[in-house]
Amino acid sequence: MSKLRILVPVKRVIDYAVKPRVNKAQTAVEKNNVKHSMNPFDELSIEEAVRLREAKKPVEDILAFSAGPAKCQDTLRTAMAMGCDRALHVVEEKQELEPLGVAKLLQKVVEDEKRNLVILGKQSIDDDANQTGQMLAGLLNWPQATQASKVEIDESDNVTVTREVDGGVETLRAKLPMIITTDLRLNEPRYASLPNIMKAKKKPLEKKSLKDYGLDVENRLKTVKVQEPPPRQGGGKVEDVDGMIAKLKELGAL
């Protein structure tokens, strides 16, 4: 079995429990003074990578990656506290990269760092695009298994992945190298313990820039406007089941 050289890209996003607010100028979602944390799907990627090691698979190393402003370092430290061995931060303060840009960057990282397994979250909960993993697989021309709920790797580098599809699950098999994106059912991510958080501070975190990769990833899409969706008015409450049926009939729903 080949040694697994795993890459787990992680994204710093507004915490899932926070209700986002659109800024007054309607150009973006307000990010100042809002709690941020690791994209929940990325926690699953890390957990899966760490579990491969714990299952005595020959994991050479697990590299956490993030692209974005300085604060992404916190996210990468969390990744290392959860079990990643080292981290790579591509510092980009000005623009927020689009999935295609991130995929191009990841392609370079995969080649540079000789990765043979990339586990990504299926989507980030901020832009909800669900693209980066598939784009990376396309750029590398590697097999892909998206929305994975179960991953098994055998002695001959066969990766068997059960994936969530409309109406149920399907199982695919491919050989390493491979791209996998995680679905919520894949695992239950662990909490970083205090000793591990302390240890993570000593793990190597390398900083690079887009220029180091010779990449000019100009965004393709122009944001015209960001708006709050039209608010929905709660129509008030009814006293009992008869009231509910009457109201539903009145609204033409029954």
Binding site: I14, K19, P20, V22, V29, I125, D126, D127, D128, R220, L221, K222, T223, V224, K225, V226, Q227, E228, P229
Partner: peptide, 15 residues
Amino acid sequence: RPIYAGNALLTVQSA
């Protein structure tokens, strides 16, 4: 398209 779990609507232009 909706972003942030449908809490905002993003209008984008593509070239």
